[in-house]
Computed example of a mutant assay.
Amino acid sequence: MKILTIDDQTLILLSVEKRLQEMGYIVKTAASGKEGIATFNTFQPDLVLVDINMPDMDGLEVVKQIRRIEEKKTPILVMSGNTNEDVIMQGFDLGVDDYMKKPVSLNEMVARIKRLIGSPEIQKAPQSGEARMLQKHCVGVVIPCYNEEERLSSKEFKDFAHKNLGYHLCFVNDGSTDDTLRVLEGLKAGNEENISIYDCAKNGGKAEAVRQGMLHLEKDPQLDYIGFLDADLSTDFRDFDELVQTLESSEFKIVSGSRMSRMGADITKESARKIISMTINLIIRTILKMPFNDTQCGAKIMERGIVKTLFTKPFITKWLFDVEIFMRMRKFYGKQEVRKYICEQPLKRWIHADGSKLSMKDSMKIVGQLAKIAIAYK
């Protein structure tokens, strides 16, 4: 049995293709609506799996074209992050046989395909029966790494990338002098579809590593959102995914994690570090003239469209680039408008990890760096 899958996001196409081939289906993919129509004519599939939101020709137009040119009624299954009820009803009016809303598991996708066209004559056992989720949007995550050989939790990163299809993890090796690059290459092996390494020859500091990684991912048109996360996973993936969900369901341009202590949250800091953080945050709020509780949390996600605005120009500080990001947002959108586009979302879990690259001595220098920022962005 032959299946044609049409989607402009390679992260999704590769995952779907691999799973269907595992099940024994013959699969061809198309990265655009026009390519999909051309492939349909030559491939003559038993089922078409199509996304709705594509740039050149959307999924509804693909359905129209297929229904117009074919003699038999090939089953069409829509799998899309577009949950607009009018679009869904229009799809059924045009002749789609089923509509799946992302996020959706590969297991559910396979079950719905079997319901429409049955199982292949020669069935293969899937490599894994666990639930792997196709995300509503494709998300790129920059993870800066400097001498993280001992702290890098390869298993957690691999597990997340394996289970959450649509995420791309980009590890930026910031000129490490230990075996960090070797560890990253081992992590990437076998996960090349959704894990990559951006290797910097020289150490430029966290700000520059994040900047380079963000600009690198911004070139990938399939990514809807791009963010960054600390390599020590002091903010875990469950919280990061909730930041993404907030961005998906709002008009915000950027959602920033916050390590605010609140009921039900597991927020752990060293006592001395906590006192210093409170003092620094007070100064930052004064400079930004915005009521932020925590600008320095290393977990942020934003729309791909604002990445160039925020990251094209190098930052003037190595550790306080988060403050500069918000200063650039304020300068671009204006003092009043900017508040509509930034969300600070409290984390449920955050643990200070041993081996932090920011020493207490560095913390004492921050006041001077904040003064530089205030002057530069006046």
Results as ranks from 00 to 15, higher is better:
S196A: 07
S196D: 06
Y198R: 00
D199C: 05
D199V: 03
A201M: 11
K202T: 15
G204F: 10
G204V: 11
G205Y: 09
K206E: 15
E208A: 12
E208Y: 10
E208T: 09
A209F: 03
V210K: 00
R211A: 04
R211C: 07
R211V: 11
Q212V: 14
G213Q: 04
G213N: 05
M214V: 07
M214C: 04
H216Y: 13
E218N: 05
E218W: 01
K219Y: 00
K219Q: 15
K219D: 11
D220I: 12
Q222M: 14
L223H: 05
L223E: 09
D224Y: 08
Y225L: 03
Y225M: 06
Y225H: 06
G227T: 07
L229H: 07
L229I: 03
L229F: 01
L229Q: 04
D230V: 02
D230Y: 04
D232Q: 08
L233S: 08
S234C: 10
T235K: 02
T235S: 12
D236E: 04
F237N: 01
R238F: 13
D239V: 06
D239I: 07
F240I: 07
F240C: 11
D241H: 15
D241C: 02
E242D: 11
L243C: 06
V244H: 03
Q245G: 10
Q245K: 15
T246N: 02
T246M: 10
L247D: 01
E248T: 08
I254C: 02
G257N: 03
G257H: 03
S258I: 03
S258Q: 03
R259T: 14
R259G: 05
S261Q: 09
S261C: 01
M263N: 14
G264K: 04
A265F: 07
T268K: 15
S271G: 00
S271I: 11
A272H: 07
R273L: 09
K274L: 14
I275S: 06
I275F: 12
I275K: 12
I275M: 12
I276S: 10
I276H: 12
T279M: 05
T279Y: 03
I280M: 11
I280E: 08
N281E: 12
I283R: 14
I283E: 14
I283T: 10
I284Q: 06
R285Y: 00
I287G: 02
I287H: 02
K289T: 09
D294E: 04
D294W: 00
T295A: 13
T295H: 00
T295K: 00
Q296A: 11
Q296G: 06
G298E: 13
I301D: 05
E303G: 13
E303C: 12
G305N: 13
G305W: 00
F311P: 01
